[in-house]
Amino acid sequence: MRFAMGKTAKEELRSKEHARLNTPTDLGDRAREDISGAVNALLADTFALYMKTKNFHWHVSGPHFRDYHLLFDEQATEIFAMTDELAERVRKLGGSTLRSISQIAKLQRSSDNDAEYVDPQDMLAELREDNRALIARMREAHSVCDEHRDIGTTSLLEEYIDQAEKRAWFLFETSRSSGMTRH
């Protein structure tokens, strides 16, 4: 059943719809905007890193196949687990979060890898650098959250920074050749 609503009724409906998503926060509207923007960009980067890690998991080959295949799968699982908590953090503050693959593509700052074949050592190096870049971006977002005294998001980011540092460390150590000497 369709019916025409007057301008006042439409405006009231839109206001009610927006209010349903606008979770109250004591941090204020500016904090909600700044933090949502920073975390949504991180969320897009996280989805992109997840996809690249799964891509390498699916396409790795060579003498270390099993080790790399399992490492990439373990890391992808950890990265994917971040996505829900980051998105829910934005929603807890009353912000709006990602809604589509195209929105992820617009916001992501990391590069994709669509190559037909990638050498396993290059996979390790690329994922290591992508994790290091994600760490730097998480530190930037942490500063935004800290500026607005958002302890919930800063503590979440601190945990994720530690996880990403561990991933980068494992990727570094895995990529070292057995003939490498210490300096």
Rank of each mutant, 00 (worst) to 15 (best):
P63H: 13
F65G: 12
Q75E: 07
T53G: 04
R91F: 07
T83N: 12
R66F: 15
P63M: 14
E88F: 02
N55D: 14
F80T: 05
E88G: 06
L71W: 00
I79L: 14
T77D: 12
A87N: 11
H57D: 11
H57K: 10
A87G: 15
R66S: 13
K54E: 10
E78V: 04
E78N: 10
E78R: 07
F72T: 05
Y68L: 15
R89V: 00
H57Q: 12
H64A: 14
H64T: 14
E88W: 00
H57E: 09
V90A: 05
D84C: 08
L86A: 06
D84M: 01
Q75G: 01
E74V: 05
G62D: 08
A76H: 05
A76W: 03
H69N: 15
I79C: 04
T53M: 03
L93R: 03
H59V: 00
A81I: 09
A76K: 03
A81E: 14
E74W: 05
L86D: 01
D67F: 00
F56C: 07
L93I: 11
V90I: 13
F72W: 05
T53Y: 01
R89H: 10
L70P: 02
R89Q: 13
G62R: 07
E88N: 06
R91G: 02
F65V: 10
V60W: 06
F65C: 12
K92S: 15
F72P: 06
R91K: 12
Y68G: 04
I79V: 15
F72I: 02
L86M: 13
K92P: 00
A76N: 03
W58S: 12
K52T: 08
D73I: 02
T77I: 11
F72E: 06
E85P: 03
